[in-house]
Simulated scan of single mutants.
Amino acid sequence: MRTSIGERFTGLVTGALLTAGALFATAAPAQAYDPDPGVFAYYRDTDTCPCSGGSLTDPFDDTYFAHDAGGTAVKMELNDAGWFIGKVEFHPSGEKLWIYDTRNDGDTFYVAVGYSSGGSYHDLGTFSAPGTSETVDLTVKDFAIPDGAYVDITVYDGAGRADYIAAARGTGGAVA
């Protein structure tokens, strides 16, 4: 039986698509933390800062909060089965969010940030560390948050704000 060039081409394309589909179907999904990581949250009234040391010490770069009248700084440490896997920091001075992923485990976590001010809520987005092969992956976000605004920081295991892990609330201080 003879087949035309078009039939052979169609057969090749169909076979390639089926092979590609099988490869994608068998690819392992990104690892998810199960159970979710433990989270320890630390708060500092930045009226009394500069602050460092003590519970702000960690194995990667230690946390330092600058003085900022009226601010509440937040540090959230994430641990999985005894491993320090990351941290999230909100610094009122400069309104910066720091996200560290400190374990090359094929997974990341996502941090949603928003603030309440003037009777309304303002969603600033969801962020994560870049996920490279470096020992520490770091993302720093610089926001313009009004003085005295409540800053909500929510950590998720899944993209799209899926699989809630923990939340904390800081306060934006005066401009440093």
Rank of each mutant, 00 (worst) to 15 (best):
A176V: 10
T14M: 07
G106I: 09
T63E: 05
L17D: 07
R2W: 14
V140N: 06
A144I: 15
A25T: 13
M1Y: 15
G158M: 03
G148W: 10
E134A: 15
V39F: 11
Y100R: 08
A129Y: 08
A28K: 15
P59A: 03
Y156K: 02
A166V: 06
D80L: 05
D58K: 01
G15M: 08
C49G: 02
Y33K: 09
E77Y: 12
D157A: 05
F109Q: 04
S55P: 15
P92W: 04
L124P: 04
H91D: 06
M76E: 06
T46G: 02
P35L: 02
G119A: 10
V155Y: 03
G15F: 14
S133N: 13
F84D: 00
P130G: 01
V39A: 12
T26V: 15
W83R: 15
N104P: 08
Y150C: 02
A176G: 13
N79S: 11
V151W: 02
S93Q: 06
D45I: 07
M76N: 01
E89F: 07
G119D: 05
V155C: 07
G114K: 05
A81M: 11
E77V: 10
F127E: 01
Y100S: 06
A69W: 01
M76C: 08
F60P: 04
L124G: 04
P37H: 02
P29T: 11
H122A: 00
L97H: 02
D61G: 13
K96R: 15
N104M: 08
D68A: 13
R8P: 08
A41D: 08
Y33H: 14
F60D: 00
G131R: 05
S52C: 04
V140P: 04
E95H: 11
D62G: 09
T72V: 13
G38Y: 06
R8T: 12
E7Q: 15
D137I: 10
F143D: 06
Y164S: 01
V151D: 03
A22H: 10
T171K: 07
D45P: 08
K96V: 06
I85M: 03
K87T: 06
V175A: 11
G160E: 09
Y43D: 07
T48V: 13
G11F: 15
R2G: 11
T46S: 03
L78K: 00
M76H: 03
L18A: 13
G6M: 05
D142W: 13
P59E: 01
Q31I: 14
A149D: 02
D68W: 00
A162T: 14
N79E: 03
D163K: 10
T3L: 14
C49D: 00
Y42P: 05
E7L: 09
A28G: 14
P35M: 05
A129V: 10
V111K: 01
F84I: 03
R2I: 11
V13P: 00
T26L: 13
V136F: 08
I5W: 14
A73M: 00
T139S: 10
A41N: 09
A69Y: 10
H122D: 05
A41F: 09
H122S: 07
T132S: 14
R169K: 11
G38C: 06
T108R: 04
G54M: 05
K96S: 03
F24R: 14
P35W: 12
Y150N: 01
D152H: 13
A30P: 11
K96E: 04
